[in-house]
Design a protein around this nucleic acid. Structure first.
Lengths: 346, 346
DNA sequence: TTGAAAGCGCTAACAG
DNA sequence: CTGTTAGCGCTTTCAA
């Protein structure tokens, strides 16, 4: 006897029900571990489902239940290792918990960030994880989304005042530690190249820098702070400006690992030796920091953990039926990765 | 602690229909640009939809139409710039065309790659883009997916024999050009550190290398080929082995931009100057190649274009109602990026 | 413990 | 050109 089971015909719970002469509802319940189903039928249904290669139609399920089991993630750029790594953490936990992950790149643009949220709304995601774009200074779109009942959690690039849960690195601590690392190596005039100061991450590192100076009784000199915009080029330019000062610095704390290689490059071009003449510290532990010359001292931001934690927060929000939004914030410790660029002693 | 009691009931086409005293079907048609709808009603419906802030429920739409408007993408690792960049190209075109993109990282593992496909099946994606994992040597899961009627397109890491459409770089040409670049700079003994040779990309670059040697009448010396596994460490080890040969090479063509910095590192450790003593060429144009010392000569793989083209192929497959899978392959030219590491002359 | 029936919001087939 | 009708596959009352 040959069955012409069409390969393309999708198996539904109705098929299973028919085969076992029970109701589709029972099949559904059995498959979803409903408590009021006898062990016997559950086993039977599961076995038949396996045999028929049944796969739940998530779409139908979503329509009925109102849950898409989709999580949207907005990152500024997939070309920065850091975010790739965070996404890895996000996906892992999300997949474990039966969610799929949609990615949207804002390319650091406010417009695209808004478009991303719009797209996610349209895709009916259950919740959204965001790392804010550099260009964003108006944050109302996040509040709008939340008003629509879709929970939002920030990671890394958060905005404190919005009262939206977030997982961040202790950037103040990071800035502080970075500066202290340089000071303890005997450098005296520490410059700082911050990122755009409207962003919490960068402002906090800046504040940490100032706090460290204070501890060492070094007066803060605004001339030693030249704002960059998070890129190798801007690191070069800022460094050039710094080194042309009447009293140039003997160390530079660059706000992250794109600015720092820019600084190294510029210093090399100006004939300065690192770390002998000038010390340099970065932030973010980008992949290449280990392999440039001199290797870059930096701070690891526990990317995978960050992704996991952010997802955990979001899932918590999704699964608690209270729509209460409690201010929640998880802070991860930055981990020092000491390499050549800051090691004057040795 | 604030509670947001959000009762905003979602607007549906029924609401619009009621408001205008027309049939829901008419609203649907108007909204979807159905040709048989009067300009007048279309305008009216659109206006009302906007006024009520209507948003189409994609899930319901998917259930009915059998199309999820989701594209699944499997990449080996989001921490490699190259893939982040390709994904960028994919997302851009996909979003333009009204598709959302699901990402899954295989982490170079065959098991996870299979799990990814399974997850996509479950999410009812319309089509899948894949760059094959390093560990994969059994390809049947791709054929299974295709049998389920879901089109698959490879990008970069393809498998010729499977007869699945693909967008790749002309790796043979790349390997050839890389080798010729070194030869034309006057290097005589060119070594090659290939990646796993079961992968088309790496094998083709290897073949290109051999072809270039042949052209220059240089006999192929198997001792000068030490297989690596695509990582900085493996680049170091292979280089060490190469340089310890009785007749060590005076140039190395490393299969990609992780192996190449490993080679540079090892050469430096052994007191060799690059490019004076030994020339080095990589492949992939990873971000950091420009910023290491010496800067790395490499080949750009047109990542964004690759993403766009792969998506284009997939959409074509999705939109043509013929389920014929014609063998289709798009080849992009690798673009030489000549930097210090290969420039002995000058 | 299970079944029957009613939709979730949308689109497609068939009329008119 | 528009309306009517009938589901897509699932979950969830409400009954039994």
């Amino acid at each position: 006897m040959q069955t012409f089971a069409q390969l393309s015909h999708k198996v539904t719970i109705a098929d299973i029900a028919r085969k076992l002469s029970i109701a589709p509802a029972t099949v559904s319940r059995a498959l979803n571990g409903h408590p009021a189903i006898s062990e016997k039928t559950r086993k039977l249904v599961e076995k038949t489902a396996r045999k028929l290669q049944y796969k739940r139609n998530n779409i139908a399920s979503s329509l009925r239940s109102g849950k898409s089991n989709l999580i949207g993630v907005i990152i500024p750029s997939a070309e920065i290792n850091f975010f790739g790594s965070v996404v890895h953490g996000i996906e892992k936990l999300a997949n474990e918990k039966g969610y799929n992950v949609l990615i949207y790149q804002s390319n650091e643009s406010w417009e695209q960030e808004k478009k991303g949220l719009e797209a996610f709304l349209h895709a009916r995601v259950d919740g959204i994880l965001v790392s804010i774009a550099k260009d964003t200074t108006d944050y109302s779109h996040f509040l709008d989304i939340r008003e629509q009942g879709i929970p939002v959690v920030f990671f890394d690039r958060a905005r404190e005042e919005l009262d939206i849960p977030a997982v961040v690195v202790d950037d103040f601590r990071g800035g502080y530690d970075a500066t202290v690392e340089l000071l303890s190596q005997g450098y005296k005039r520490i410059a700082h190249i911050p990122g755009p100061l409207h962003m919490d991450v960068f402002r906090n590192r800046f504040l940490g820098y100032q706090a460290a100076l204070k501890l060492y009784d070094i007066p803060f000199d605004p001339l030693l702070v030249v704002e960059g915009y998070v890129s190798i080029e801007s690191g070069q330019k800022a460094t050039e400006q710094l080194m042309k000062l009447p009293h140039p610095p003997d160390a530079i704390f660059a706000v992250e690992d794109f600015t720092a290689p820019g600084a190294l490059k510029q210093l090399k071009a100006m004939g300065k030796r690192v770390p002998q003449d000038v010390g340099v510290v970065g932030f973010a532990n980008e992949l290449f920091g280990e392999h440039i010359t001199p290797s870059l001292t930096t701070f690891d931001q526990q990317t995978v953990t960050m992704g996991r934690e952010a997802t955990g927060l979001l899932l918590q929000l999704l699964e608690s039926d209270t729509k209460t939004i409690t201010k929640q914030k998880i802070m991860l410790e930055p981990i020092a990765v000491i390499r050549e660029s800051s090691q004057r002693k040795k």
